[in-house]
């Protein structure tokens, strides 16, 4: 295992010395999938009406939701290992940082008593509950706040089931502080206007069919002064590192996905959806276009930009 990993590393490096282009990634599995599902042929860069991206393919919008669903249903149980591969093993640290930095919870010792107790947090695409549990832990142990609550929303019932299962290992299962709902981020009808203090989405937004619509929904449900916070894979800013990382993610991850989960297609999709996601500045502009104020330059790069945290504040 050790030996083969070294070898893999060498190959990756060797590859990055050569030409880096998208061409080699039009891999066998993609063409098979394309043939099977008869997606309309790619029309990049301009999308034809009613089509969207599924990884590097262009598919009918109605199909995307369904196919994203299939991807996450099939990776739900091996989900953690996937995140480990994509983030070179550091997504846990990013999530810790993400939560610590948001500092959820209202500290009764330093906050003057006023009407509202605790924060109302909505964790979108929260699937496995990873972010939600961290939020509640932070609120309870750091801010001595036993009222802050989190609603975990995900479009995929399999991911929610996984989350509920994991919740049983925490003190929050079956308490009013933790709730799971099945919902599409683009249509949060069950959440009233101006009701949320903090909206989080970690490694989810790149899967949404209409990111702008989701941002508008976020704006609607947030209270004035409420915060939108997004942790997502992003664009690596060091060119050499980028080349290496691209080789890693495109070359190795689908392969590993096949070996570990027996599911190359789903992992291929995940890699491609990351490459498709807008750059840090583009996404910052999208957040501003939805009406948010952004702190400072609007985002924080993590590990050279492999991931980034974007934030927006709804004006009061």
């Amino acid at each position: 295992m050790q030996a083969s990993r070294t070898q893999l590393g060498r190959q990756l490096l060797a590859g990055s010395m050569g030409r880096v282009s998208r061409e080699p990634y039009r891999c066998f599995s993609c063409s098979v999938r394309q043939a099977q599902q008869q997606a309309p042929p790619p029309k990049a860069p301009q999308d034809a009406q009613g089509t969207t991206h599924f990884g590097f393919q262009t598919v009918a919008e109605a199909l995307k939701e369904q196919r994203v669903g299939a991807v996450f249903s099939s990776v739900a149980s091996s989900y953690d290992s996937m995140n480990d591969f994509m983030s070179l093993g550091i997504h846990r640290l990013w999530k810790d940082h993400f939560v610590r930095n948001l500092n959820p919870g209202r500290n009764p010792l330093t906050s003057p008593s006023s009407g509202d107790k605790g924060w109302n947090i909505l964790d979108i695409a929260g699937g496995t509950g990873d972010i939600a549990f961290r939020m509640l832990d932070h609120a309870s142990t750091i801010n001595h706040d036993a009222h802050t609550k989190v609603t975990v929303a995900d479009i995929n019932p399999d991911m929610l089931t996984e989350g509920k299962k994991r919740a049983l290992q925490t003190p929050y299962a079956r308490t009013p502080r933790l709730k799971f709902v099945e919902a599409n981020a683009e249509k949060l009808d069950m959440i009233p206007d101006n009701s949320i203090d903090l909206y989080t989405v970690a490694f989810g937004i790149r899967n949404f069919t209409h990111k702008e619509t989701a941002l508008k929904e976020a704006f609607r449900v947030l209270k004035p002064g409420g915060v939108f916070a997004c942790l997502e894979f992003s664009k690596v800013n060091n060119p050499l590192f980028d080349a290496v990382y691209q080789r890693w993610s495109f070359g190795a991850i689908p392969l590993i996905g096949q070996l570990v989960a027996g599911d190359r297609d789903s992992y291929q999709y995940l890699v491609e959806s990351i490459a498709r996601f807008p750059s840090q500045t583009e996404f910052r502009d999208m957040i501003q276009d939805a009406g948010f104020l952004v702190p400072g330059k609007g985002w924080e790069d993590l590990t050279n930009g492999i991931a980034a945290i974007h934030k927006g504040v709804k004006p009061a």
């Binding site: 930095n101 948001l102 500092n103 959820p104 209202r106 906050s111 924060w119 203090d197 903090l198 209270k223 004035p224 002064g225 409420g226 915060v227 916070a229 702190p295 934030k311 504040v313 009061a316």
Partner: peptide, 8 residues
Amino acid sequence: GYLDVSTN
């Protein structure tokens, strides 16, 4: 007129 969370 903002919230605790707005310190972000």
